[in-house]
Simulated scan of single mutants.
Amino acid sequence: MRSREEVDATLHVAKLDPAELLPAAQCLSFSAQAADAGECRLLQLEPELCAELEAGRSLVIRGDRDEHAVLCSKDKTYDMKIADTSNTLLFIPGCETPEQLGIIKTASNILYTQIAGFSNNYWELRRCRPKLKKLKKLLMENPYEGPDSENERSSTKSKYTTEELLDQVQASEEEIMDQLKVLKACQIEGCWRILDFDYEMKLLNHVTQLIYTESWPFSKVPLSICLQELGPLEPKEMIEHILVSYGKRYIDEGETYFEMNEEKICRATAQMLLQNAVKFSLAEFQEVWQQSVPEGMTTRQDQLKGLALVDKSSRPETISLLNVEDLPEDNQERFNSLFAIREKWTEADIAPYIQDLCSEKQTIGTLLTKYARSSVQNGLKVYNSRRPVS
């Protein structure tokens, strides 16, 4: 089986349209003319992908020259590899499968026809995780610092539309759009932008201060009054965006309200406190953290999963920022980074940092078995790297 490195580098973004594909036996595979004259490449599709084509939707091959090609439907991403076959596959115009032959036709009939192409291999597709790290990397090239920022007025840095992100990120459209929500990205003048974290916290502080001043419950924050009161300070679009990012919209008696999310607000506050400190005394941090969140909200250590790491072996115990979003996307590279940070991990500590690596058929236990070695230390099961970490 050949690796994805052998996929033609010219496959930057290609579309497979139903009209351009020829159905083969049992509708489990389709053929498309390859660059080599007379040779065809077979693309083996799962039934759900066949259904996509039969419904008139397209499949898209994505990948820059230095990336492995992937195939994307509207909502899923598939790894592409070339698999060799033991027999040569021949492509014959008008060929009928046994199921398509009528019972009245006898087996003795011999038909002479021209072979249109052949193939000794085919593209094998396997469902894989979308490659979304590049999405944040692209958007962080030019974070939005507000309309009055000097950098915004003079910036010539890249800005990306939806089509440009679809062109560069190896993931399906739905997976990309879902990740944009996770990143709290918004569209400004037709381009997707991530807010600069300091500016984001400034907007959030405006909203929480107004909630405190008006004595509103966090479960019922009126959109119209927020826009009216905070509009002179910041663009109304940004005020609404921060409400969407940290709350849940609902309608009550014709008015739009937001129920603010305590965990998201506490988590963002913790990130603000930790981002400028190498290590923080855990006890001191918990005290400062509780004092920093809006009155009426309660901080809990479980709100920091995948954001901060507690070192219980130090005296006093310390906490430091370790955001899962900043870790490598590749499985082995992820484990290498984690074991470079800490030699031994408990399952409870490492789980938030590898949970996103789990596929449909993988669990955290499966990943640990493959990439780590377990041992018992002071009566506690811990995991360390299977290979030397530089």
Results as ranks from 00 to 15, higher is better:
residue 7 V to F: 12
residue 226 C to A: 14
residue 230 L to N: 01
residue 173 E to M: 10
residue 381 K to W: 00
residue 69 A to C: 10
residue 242 I to P: 02
residue 315 R to M: 10
residue 389 V to Q: 13
residue 329 E to A: 14
residue 121 N to Q: 09
residue 54 E to R: 03
residue 96 E to A: 11
residue 324 V to A: 12
residue 164 E to M: 14
residue 135 L to P: 02
residue 295 E to F: 10
residue 359 S to M: 02
residue 302 D to P: 07
residue 8 D to P: 13
residue 83 A to D: 03
residue 125 L to S: 06
residue 14 A to F: 04
residue 37 A to C: 07
residue 31 S to T: 13
residue 319 I to V: 15
residue 232 P to V: 11
residue 336 N to C: 09
residue 222 P to R: 10
residue 133 K to E: 10
residue 75 D to S: 13
residue 325 E to P: 03
residue 318 T to N: 04
residue 247 G to E: 10
residue 305 K to S: 15
residue 209 Q to S: 13
residue 19 A to N: 11
residue 240 E to F: 05
residue 172 S to K: 09
residue 368 L to F: 02
residue 186 C to A: 11
residue 140 M to C: 14
residue 29 S to L: 00
residue 107 A to Y: 10
residue 271 Q to E: 15
residue 23 P to L: 03
residue 114 Q to F: 06
residue 341 I to G: 13
residue 327 L to H: 04
residue 123 W to A: 09
residue 349 D to E: 14
residue 192 W to M: 10
residue 72 C to L: 05
residue 326 D to W: 00
residue 240 E to R: 14
residue 127 R to S: 04
residue 64 D to T: 05
residue 88 T to A: 10
residue 142 N to W: 01
residue 135 L to G: 05
residue 330 D to A: 13
residue 200 E to W: 00
residue 43 L to F: 13
residue 321 L to S: 12
residue 17 D to C: 04
residue 136 K to G: 11
residue 292 S to Y: 00
residue 44 Q to D: 06
residue 57 R to W: 09
residue 165 L to F: 01
residue 284 E to T: 13
residue 11 L to T: 12
residue 50 C to D: 02
